[in-house]
Design a protein around this nucleic acid. Sequence first.
DNA 1: CTGTTGTTATGAAACGTTTTTATTATACCG
DNA 2: CGGTATAATAAAAACGTTTCATAACAACAG
Lengths: 336, 336
Amino acid sequence: MAKVTIKDVAREAGVAISTVSNAMNNSNLVNEETRAKILEVAERLDYVPNMNGRMLKTKRSNELAFLTSSIQGDYFTTFLGSMNQQCNDMGYTLNIVITRDDDVIRNHILGKGFDGIFIFLGEWFREAGIQLLEKHRIPAVFLDRAYSSSRIGSVVFDSRRMGYQAAKYLINLGHRGIGFLEGSMDVFDGVQRKQGYLDAMEEYGLPVRQEFVLDGRFDELYTYNAVTSFLRRREVEMPDAFIAGNDLSAVGCINALKDAGYQVPQDVSVVGFDDIPVAKYLSPKLTTVKNPISLQGIAAVKMLVGIIQERGCGRVESLAGELLVRESSGVMLRDK
Amino acid sequence: MAKVTIKDVAREAGVAISTVSNAMNNSNLVNEETRAKILEVAERLDYVPNMNGRMLKTKRSNELAFLTSSIQGDYFTTFLGSMNQQCNDMGYTLNIVITRDDDVIRNHILGKGFDGIFIFLGEWFREAGIQLLEKHRIPAVFLDRAYSSSRIGSVVFDSRRMGYQAAKYLINLGHRGIGFLEGSMDVFDGVQRKQGYLDAMEEYGLPVRQEFVLDGRFDELYTYNAVTSFLRRREVEMPDAFIAGNDLSAVGCINALKDAGYQVPQDVSVVGFDDIPVAKYLSPKLTTVKNPISLQGIAAVKMLVGIIQERGCGRVESLAGELLVRESSGVMLRDK
DNA sequence: CTGTTGTTATGAAACGTTTTTATTATACCG
DNA sequence: CGGTATAATAAAAACGTTTCATAACAACAG
């Protein structure tokens, strides 16, 4: 069955297509009786306006795009759930596009007519992309970096502050040799969390021992291997605590410690980031910094819509988290 | 900066717009020299063809839609990851749309010009939706029900067979009073898994005791409550095993049993469905039926693209799973 | 010199809308 | 009854593409 267009409706209802258009768009230019007739016909024929035709004319789509390099893990789904809901509440449809391809990214930014773009592409989105956004004045909000201009904003988790707080918490427990399992250094949160940790160590006059800073890449297995090989080098002194770049990394770390015969938290405390759903089922239950992902998503939508509707302009919004003390940390007292 | 169109490129390159179009679409109608010039200009101006204009003409978008009522949980992200990859490999872009709204569904089916649709809407998609697809001959593949016609197919997990196998496994261990924690009865997998369980019970001549069949709704908390209140009714005899509709439900069940003082699997065996990532971290590690989600996603994409390109027609494809025996089942011997 | 063929480039129509402008019908007023 | 304001509808242009028919031009055969 051929696609039914506004013409079909017009013919069937015996009016001009402009009248159908007006009737469908609730214009008050059309007689109530005529409108009723038209709506009845439209309903009967399953008429749905062709979005391409419409957008070509109106230049507004009420569609937002979420460009992301991945949706694996609870982190992303939490994000997407809250953002999708908030978009709907504000009258927009969210299109989620998983890609790492420059051309696909370009097409979505320039060719699809989205009203605005959320960007969570990490290393897959670089300077050239920002130039493109700026040059063509595309409203955008970053979720994984801090950048702002008149039409571009960011909503980020204040990883630096929370990294600082996590370290301070361990220091106050009496820990002194605190190691850090850094995430990816080309990711905003990776850099910031580490910086927060360094801030705290410096504030308390504690030396940062380079051999206590391992590369964990936000990955469970990678961290497991890194910690295991670290532990094998028996000549090095042991840290009495680890801050991991995220919860997955913390899990890898704990498993490596256990497998090497250490007890968590009796021998070593471990703190993670994010509070993924499993965190509280692990044994020991994971002490972690809760990431207000849903709130971040909602704030991002509000900001982007604000920019689109010219009610606001781009800025960097930084959200605090919350340290959840569970079982993987905290045993050590000052006297150990 | 105003959006740059094919006209701008044409003017700048000193050719007609039809020539630009031909040059961009690799037609061999255009002189190599001219094409080079045009591509250079297009690149310089950041020209990206407007998809709406293009689709209006061509009626092909190379875009597929995935309509889903939710993306919470590893189940969906696994799906989406594999499907997205497969779509890209086959030259399509996947648009993920989370919705439960009839109008949004209608608009996406009829108004956006998708080449085809994946549907995972459960109870949010009913008979009227199928009628719409059929009437307008929209290629579609269901992932959560078995339906087929010339332009519509399904790729489903063979839940019935696996429900049967799970029950048979428990029966062979010596279990006789096997309970079932049913999922949602308006979901394909919910119905099928239960049916498989009933098949096995019947085959082995075991009576199905209605009071052993509880409503778990695929939900951890809901199941926890259901099992807890079941256990409180002390007059009823205890089942010696439970098959849960999915892993979440199994987790709720195990927690309820533990909290009531029972041991798993010493007192009661529990088997789940899906093999969610946490399954192997739980204590006891969960015995479950692995759901070949990625394969299902890939098969679905292949089927939909086949229908679109008229290389195949709709049918029901049913994928087997695999029983993973871990720690939450298996202790009982015939002599208990 | 005419007609044919092949290669490139162009002009114009079409896709399905919205929107602006024009047309028609109706009612009202002096 | 002529004129004018008002309401309802229609016609036409425009949005950015693709595509098809046509044009321009050269080369070449007869």
